[in-house]
Simulated scan of single mutants.
Amino acid sequence: MNTVSRTKGDKIFDFANTAFFVIVLLATIYPLYFMLIASISHPAAVNNGEIWIWPKDITFEGYKMILEHDKLWNGYKNSIIYTVVGTAINILLTITGGYALSRKDLVGRNVFMFFITFTMFFGGGMIPSYLLVKDLGMVNTMWALVIPGAISAYNLIIVKTFFQSTIPDELLDAGIVDGCTNWRFLLSVVLPLSKAIIAVMVLFYAVGHWNTYFSALIYLRDADLYPLQLVLREVLILTQAQEVFENSGALMEGSLEMQNLSGLIKYGIVIVASLPMLILYPFVQKHFVKGVMIGSIKG
């Protein structure tokens, strides 16, 4: 068995490389971990900087209040609906649009690509966008959050590149000879070979919909339509817990106790808001790297 001797420089490089990525890993994971332990620790210990690695004086009062508050769960429900519906629309338009643009026989393909790329650098702005959404009658509706951003030019280009580099023209020619239509070829051949890029797009779009709050802040007026992130934003800017739970009847006496409860609620909501994406990622992780790498290289 042949072995390759490693020089001192190789060992130093490996050590530095490992140390660097360990630091990056800790910098990425620790904030979420801190939120978790802070959400179950006594607020006084958190405020005094006593929480670093382990929780102190564990309490689940914050999560208890969160579970009892209807407004938070309504926001949770809305975010799930917006994410599922919005992602479905995104995937439908991005996959079909990317496939069409990847076909060399598409008339005017370069013209379409020019205008699509143009939108990545120039936009109408917030006020014209709001006026357009208002004229379309979508203000204060779910569609104001999913239709204006129904397709991302960046993601469309990634999908187009993926199809060009993965689906050979000979495969389409063989399908045409066998009497396969464009739709049949897309559904029966292209999609089964594109699970990696579809998984990547689902993750990209789903995370975007789940984390969005600015569009809801602009277009939504009815509090019953607020997504979870907008509810979270409201909680984070409140100074007293009784304002958060004014309809729950769970008021605490004393401003200090209310501030402590507010701190627990803030940390707890961050954890609750992050859970769906943390649960989704392991299911698409195996396709994630492959899809991004293939989709970013033109063959």
Rank of each mutant, 00 (worst) to 15 (best):
N2T: 15
N2R: 13
T3Y: 07
R6L: 15
D14M: 14
A16Y: 08
T18I: 13
T18N: 07
F20L: 11
V22W: 10
P31G: 05
L32N: 08
L36G: 07
I40G: 07
A45C: 02
V46W: 08
N48R: 09
W52E: 01
G62V: 07
G62S: 05
Y63V: 02
M65H: 10
I66E: 07
H69Y: 12
K71C: 01
L72Y: 15
W73V: 09
W73Q: 05
T83S: 10
V84M: 06
V85F: 13
V85L: 15
A88F: 10
I89D: 09
N90T: 14
I91M: 15
L92N: 08
T94Y: 00
I95H: 00
R103G: 08
L106D: 00
L106V: 07
F112G: 00
M113H: 01
F115P: 01
F118E: 08
M120V: 11
G124E: 13
G124S: 07
G125L: 01
M126Q: 09
P128Y: 15
L131F: 14
V133T: 10
V139E: 08
N140C: 02
N140K: 08
W143F: 15
G149M: 13
A150Q: 07
A150N: 09
L156S: 04
L156E: 02
T161D: 14
T166W: 04
P168I: 12
P168D: 08
L172F: 09
L172E: 13
A174I: 00
I176W: 00
D178L: 00
D178E: 03
F185S: 00
F185V: 00
F185G: 00
L186S: 00
A196N: 14
F204E: 01
W210E: 07
Y213N: 01
F214Q: 02
D224K: 15
L225Y: 06
L225R: 10
P227Y: 06
L228R: 09
L232G: 03
E234C: 01
E234S: 11
V235S: 06
V235E: 04
V235G: 11
L236Y: 15
I237V: 15
A241D: 02
S248V: 09
A250D: 06
M252N: 05
N260L: 07
N260T: 05
L261H: 03
L264H: 13
L264T: 08
V270I: 14
I271F: 09
A273F: 15
Y281E: 05
F283S: 02
V284H: 02
F288A: 05
K290F: 04
S296Y: 02
